[in-house]
Simulated assay, not measured.
Amino acid sequence: MVHGTRKVHGSSTSSTRQGHHAIQKDIQRSSASIAELSHRYNLNPKMVRKWRHRSSVEDERMGPKQPSSTSLSDLEEVAAITFRHTTWLALNDCFFALQRFISHLTRSSLHWLHWRHSISQLPRQTDEAMDKPSFKHYSIGYLHMDI
């Protein structure tokens, strides 16, 4: 459906997500031909066929259903994840430590492995650890020396 010069379909920048869903629902319910729906909504016939065969109007997840590393074996992945969980070292430190044992490991593959398992960011320090003073407080004029 074209209103003046404004397109009303999913790839249009002026359409809303609700409008996109409404068009998908109408395509799924309609008994009109693919060519007619394609012309009515100014869509590619392939898109109309795709939307007609979907069970819902929600966009499907892109990418692999079970994401995994292309360069690491399952055992190497488990080792890298366990290492990160036990040491909580930064990415570069983990990379240099694990590279000795997994020679084909790259920083990028380790980063994406951490990202896939939601361990790419180190846990934040608690307020208790930040509030603890590193030295005992003495009164003014007192000099403390450790030799």
Rank of each mutant, 00 (worst) to 15 (best):
V57D: 12
A80D: 00
S120E: 15
P64T: 03
M62V: 14
A90R: 11
A97N: 14
S31L: 03
D146E: 08
V78W: 01
I147K: 14
M1L: 12
E36A: 15
D26L: 02
S31N: 13
S139M: 12
E76Y: 12
H21K: 15
T5S: 13
L72I: 05
I23P: 03
P45C: 01
R107C: 10
R100M: 03
F135L: 14
R84G: 04
S109M: 04
Q66T: 09
F95G: 02
P67K: 06
S38T: 01
E77Q: 13
E77L: 02
N42G: 13
K25M: 09
A22Q: 08
A97T: 01
N44C: 09
K65D: 06
P123A: 04
K46F: 04
G10S: 11
F95A: 02
S12M: 03
K132W: 07
T87C: 12
T13Y: 10
S134T: 13
T5D: 12
S30C: 08
H3A: 05
D146V: 04
N42Y: 11
S56Y: 06
E58C: 07
S71C: 07
I119N: 10
W88T: 10
E77A: 09
L89F: 02
V2N: 09
S109C: 09
T87M: 09
I119W: 03
Q121Y: 01
G141I: 06
T13E: 12
S33F: 03
